[in-house]
Design a protein around this nucleic acid. Structure first.
Length: 571
RNA sequence: GGGCCUGUAGCUCAAUUGGUCAGAGCAGAGCGCUCAUAACGCUUUGGUUGGGGGUUCGAGUCCCUCCGGGCCUACCA
């Protein structure tokens, strides 16, 4: 029994996320959280919406809403979708919460006390018509190199040349098209990450078990050029966490807010505090997860994120934590993912390309998406969603291998044994062999889940499902029944005992189906993890009733596939 | 431009870190079964490991080079 703190990278507030976003963090973290709970660990699983920054302000503007109201609505939308996908967060918080305001300002104050903040006067592009400073990539114009007219201020997408917004010919606001732009001086706070470089590098070097994807990105930033650079942690925006030094004013910073990437990771902590607040618990309830001086010294902290998030989680956020000089919990393991592509291209929120979470749930049960996405989770390289692959895997793995097994066993029980677990008969070498094989696969499955290697785990789980069919087929109780009813009953009893086992093992990936399978022979409560396989396979009481569940998974026809494919065809 | 990742059967992925004839699943082929969602089981056909060169007793694995795909490059988040 361990204590495990799990956080998912927090999804940005501006709209419904696509399957690529889902599989890159929230879904795998949920599978892991469910597994850890099933193994009896004490789990705190945290996520939130990331609500600050320029895109949120612009999205609200576009929607014609005050940004606070827009975020309220979008948070609700995302929370409902998380629920639809059965994401089992202990708390789904908000980076805009008062808890996050307080903690972010607290960290800024501590970092100032430690002389890790300095003020810097920067020159930035200001749009007079929009009354706002514009980040480089929100400025467009003609590329001075290749003449491309829609070059972004940070880089020309046509010739890939890196640019400075002042290089652009005829610059304009990408959002409004405003052309009255000027360079203005503005004062900002920088976190002196450079002062913590050695400490961060030593810390990264100590993480020998982290994925290469994670450490190589961190090392690149630590060693590239002049080494780790200081980083601006404030912005000239209206919506965000006001710049304060703890609970005192910060002269000269009255109109500024903290940079979204400064406050977003702190929201992991804040959301845990929100969880405590929501349950009427005191501060110790969340501090025992986050403060090593208040009970968190035995916590294992695992973060999930897409590869684009790695620098902030390996460097900026640890710099904040370490720099505070306070005993906050640092991450123990970072699981990072590559990207999921869609039918030969990229998922794109701005282009609306791909399948989005709301569409997906309207089409098919969440378990089908969860299974396909986790089977193909981009662990080692980018992977690709295609409708054909989705149809084939859902049909074969879920409908044929698992669904049909549940169906054939329960129906056989109903038609030949009156819907009751048979009594009598004895087990033989077939059952011993099946038990031994299951024990081996179960060990492998547990190993892969402990190592957070999901694709291997899904293959192993599928193998465990297949074993049921293989056993039932070779034991052929329908034939044995003609001569030896007791023996046929013993075979069926063994097969029925696989159902609660499957329910428990499958729950992290397909929780709804697992519940249905568990209810066939159980009381509806969650099936227990098989700590001892022999005991587990003898857990059903002879005579207890067995129900025949509704079809566990429907198959997707080729025609349905084509319809969905056409409906979501790339523009 | 620079850094990192990646290329293995028609498809999706393995290969215990240099060590038996490169293995699975799907798709394809054959046989079997009839309890079951025409489901399941068994058997089986597919590979000059992107190309070329090198190191080694031995290379998918290490080195060089060329070709293809991807991510990041610090003011999107």
């Amino acid at each position: 029994m361990a204590r495990i703190l799990i956080t998912s990278a927090i999804p940005y507030i501006n709209g419904v996320k696509h399957l690529g976003n889902l599989v890159g963090s929230q879904l795998p973290s949920d599978v892991y959280a469910r597994y850890c709970r099933a193994r009896g660990h004490e789990v705190m699983f945290i996520c939130a919406t990331d609500e600050h920054g320029t895109p949120a302000e612009l999205a609200a503007e576009k929607a014609g809403q005050p940004v606070r109201e827009y975020c309220d609505e979008m948070h609700k939308v995302q929370a409902d979708l998380a629920c639809g996908f059965r994401l089992s967060f202990d708390h789904f918080g908000r980076s805009s919460s008062q808890r996050n305001h307080g903690l972010t300002q607290h960290f800024a104050g501590r970092l100032t006390d430690k002389n890790l903040i300095r003020e810097v006067v920067e020159k930035q592009i200001y749009s007079i018509q929009d009354s706002r400073f514009l980040p480089d990539r929100y400025i467009k114009g003609t590329c001075p190199e290749c003449g491309y007219e829609n070059a972004r201020g940070d880089q020309c997408e046509n010739c890939t040349r890196q640019l400075d917004p002042v290089d652009l010919i005829n610059p304009r606001s990408a959002q409004s098209g405003a052309t009255e732009l000027e360079i203005r001086e503005t004062r900002h706070l920088h976190l002196r990450q450079s002062a913590l470089r050695q400490e961060l590098e030593d810390w990264i070097d100590s993480k020998t078990d982290w994925p290469i994807l994670t450490t190589s990105i961190a090392r690149k930033w630590l060693r590239d050029g002049d080494g780790l650079q200081d980083r601006g942690i404030t912005r000239d925006l209206d919506w965000g966490i006001p710049v304060r030094r703890g609970d005192t004013e910060w002269p000269g910073m009255e109109d500024k807010v903290f940079y979204v990437w400064f406050d977003a990771p702190i929201a992991y902590i804040a959301a845990t505090a929100e969880w405590a607040d929501a349950h009427g618990l005191g501060d110790n309830a969340w501090e025992r997860w986050w403060r090593t001086d208040r009970g968190a010294e035995d916590v294992r902290y695992v973060q999930f994120m897409g590869k684009d998030n790695v620098p902030f989680h390996t460097l900026s956020f640890p710099a904040t934590i370490i720099g505070s000089g306070e005993p906050w919990k640092l991450v123990d393991f970072i699981k990072s993912f590559n990207f999921l592509n869609y039918e030969g291209g990229q998922f794109s929120t701005s282009l609306g390309r791909g399948v989005f979470m709301d569409d997906a749930l309207a089409l098919l049960p969440s378990d089908t998406w969860r299974w396909w996405l986790m089977k193909h989770v981009p662990e080692t390289s980018d992977s690709e969603f295609t409708w054909e692959s989705f149809r084939l895997d859902v049909n074969k793995d879920l409908a044929d291998v698992l669904g049909n097994f549940v169906s054939r066993v329960t129906r056989f029980c109903q038609s030949r044994f009156d819907g009751k677990v048979p009594d009598g008969g004895s087990q033989g070498p077939e059952e011993a062999a099946a038990t031994a094989a299951l024990a081996t696969h179960l060990r492998n499955y547990e190993t892969h889940m402990e190592a957070i290697e999901f694709r291997r785990a899904t293959a192993e789980l599928r193998e465990i499902w297949t074993l049921g069919n293989s056993y039932f087929q070779s034991a052929e109780p329908w034939t044995v029944l003609r001569e030896d009813r007791d023996r046929a009953g013993a075979i069926l009893r063994f097969a029925l005992n696989l159902l609660p086992l499957y329910a428990a093992l499958s729950e992290p990936f397909i929780p709804d189906a697992a519940e249905t399978i568990g209810a066939v022979t159980g009381d509806g409560s969650r099936a227990r993890w098989p700590e001892n396989i022999e005991t587990s396979l003898n857990s059903l009481q002879p005579g207890q009733s067995v129900s025949v569940p509704a079809l566990l998974f429907s198959k997707i026809s080729e025609q349905e596939q084509e319809e969905m494919q056409a409906r979501f065809s790339p523009p």
